[in-house]
Nucleic acid binder design. Structure first.
Lengths: 136, 136, 136, 136
DNA sequence: GTGGTCTAGACCACG
DNA sequence: GTGGTCTAGACCACT
């Protein structure tokens, strides 16, 4: 039996991230946080597009990216489902991506004049939403 | 007396960041890290463009952004200098930028499957390069 | 100095593969075969679309897939370039993909009534186009 | 005397192949491997559909494809049976299919960075499951 | 009904 | 000039 996910997503027009990114980020977080479990069915492309009042192609693109990255699994005619999570990337690639993300993040927050600890706390707070739920 | 900065900058072709961003990031980090001091003069647009083998327009754009954000100060006829103290952003703007950066960062590293502590350590390590130098 | 690649590609309408796949396959083979070297610039999206008489979006999609898979590197405003090849996938993922490809291939050729050796020779012939050139 | 085949088939949800393809592949392999012999009766459309918990239309479509390709033989009122000998495809068609399969396979495994010999060994191993049984 | 592909054309950021 | 995003609508295969 497959659960049909509700997907609490909302598109924010003022968000600097492109719509596709907002969708992929939202879904990744829900999977990482345990709100979406492997095997769960996602809303249909057309359905989510209507719900968010955006073009179906935009949803399809977001879904395609998540599928390519191994988060989702497409079963033609049936729909899209949350995939079993597995380690797809090599250690070198993971390290490279972490380094890149850290570099970008630090460049972003430099000059905002926040104490280092404040920044770390904020990251930890956001991050811990996922660590804990996944192991629960 | 004004120091004429050397600007140890290099454009990395493999870097996903646009060139403008690479320049602004590099300069911001050098100022935050104390390698560039208030009053130091920056290389001329043409000079830096030649040094980096890129289009002068790109350098000019990077300088313009840094000036707009208060990192640099233009003294007409003399060139650009590191500003005495940066123009403070409003608290709302600072908070907005921090939240956005954290959000993006967490989305980037989710799914890389690193322990939370590892991620925090990496951020702290990069961040502390600047904290310490600034207070020194 | 960057080479601007010629890209001997042609779209075959009778080909069962979608156009996007024909493009990605063709480029992957040229990279794997050493006809395209890291750093080489690819034809522009619009240019290749015109050359192949297809929609620019189709080319863009093919390029985007190759970029996501690490074959190409996008430098906004400059164009797309052949990336340095590195091991992006974990050993488990590589093994999984190989197994899947073998399984599909065998299913495809079963019942064609070719001797096993004939099939292997054909695979070897195609495969060796790339192995040898890469090490050369 | 006709044997009623058991058909050790199972639909794998994680499989990227459409369900119809999973069925046809499975049956073809069992025939090629000698597990299903000419004259053996196949499970009814409804029975197999129920056994696999899938839509009867899907089973019917798979059976229709196999019948069209000469693997199965329909005896009206009695059901479907494994054909005595498959209808031979034209040499041109066989060659076309082999070339297409090889082309696709090589495109799939390029970039996985396996030594050519490893790939060939894997294909040979899978392939020999059928060659040997058929000649035995 | 489902997702996937392709076309067409507009708009934006970067160099 | 470059690629990237989004919209709109047509067509196909699979269930």
């Amino acid at each position: 039996m497959t659960r049909r996910a509700l997907l609490m997503l909302q598109i924010v027009t003022g968000d600097p991230r492109p719509i596709t990114r907002q969708i992929t980020d939202g879904i990744k977080r829900q999977i990482a946080g345990g709100d979406l479990l492997p095997g769960d069915a996602l809303p249909s492309v057309r359905g989510l597009a209507q719900q968010l009042s955006i073009n179906p192609n935009t949803v399809a693109k977001a879904y395609a990216e998540l599928t390519a990255e191994g988060w989702l699994l497409s079963r033609t005619g049936l729909g899209l489902f949350v995939a079993e999570q597995r380690q797809r990337l090599s250690d070198e690639e993971r390290e490279r991506r972490l380094a890149e993300a850290v570099d970008r993040f630090v460049s972003d927050v430099i000059g905002l004049d926040y104490p280092q600890q404040t920044i770390l706390d904020r990251v930890a707070a956001d991050l811990s939403n996922y660590e804990t739920k996944k192991t629960a």
